[in-house]
Amino acid sequence: MQDMRLKLHIWRQAGPEAQGALRTYEVTANEHMSFLEMLDVLNQDLIEKGEEPVAFEHDCREGICGTCNMVIDGRPHGPQKGTTACQLHMRAFKDGDEIHVEPWRATAFPIIKDLVVDRAPFDRIIASGGFVSVNTGAAQDANEIPVPKADADDAFSYAACIGCGACVAACKNASAMLFTAAKFAHLEKLPQGRVESERRALAMVEQHDAEGFGACTNQYECEAVCPKEISVTSIAMLNKAYRSAVLKTRETV
């Protein structure tokens, strides 16, 4: 196992209001470590030296909880396609590399500390309409409504979103359209979800806008960095649904 010496430039910011800056650190890693394990090694070092460790969020380290979030060399979650930072392994780097590590940058995601940002707007977008209005116990038998396999598979591919926010981080406009549209498309593809389609499109898009995210500019950087490789077809679906919902809705405008 070959050791690799790396130079890291990491964004350090003591608190939400504090002035942040990139600080440079050196760390020795090996190719079997995950990127976050490499940061663990750095942090253990820092603590032993009496410095404050780098704050970064992480939890499952299996690429599914969506907690980890960092921009590695300008790419959310780093250079490997379809991979979260926690699943990125150091074999994607080589000895002597310099690596920049920065937080998600978006006005809607204010920095809490170092690489930790506040992604609460995502919850509010879901709360605005990203659900099916069914109370516990009100459901009919699960096989009552057959769903074409292709639709169920499509719905799944959108529902696979882990809510990490990489789409926002990658978009030059810090737009959360892929996140918003993925949830919309997931429910739109299922008969259970379609009932509330119009209300959902209106509420979710307008909440997205109210949170201060930018507009989608059809560059598809979001799709390129999405660790779950969610398709921008969802955005086209939402574009169409929102337009037609505004023009058709019987809600008082």
Binding site: F131, V134, A138, A139, Q140, D141, P146, L190
Partner: peptide, 17 residues
């Protein structure tokens, strides 16, 4: 039943079940 009603996309067969 509850999960399907919520829109959980469980795996399905070609018949839709």
């Amino acid at each position: 039943d509850q999960c399907v009603a919520q829109g959980v996309p469980f795996a399905r067969e070609y018949g839709g079940y």
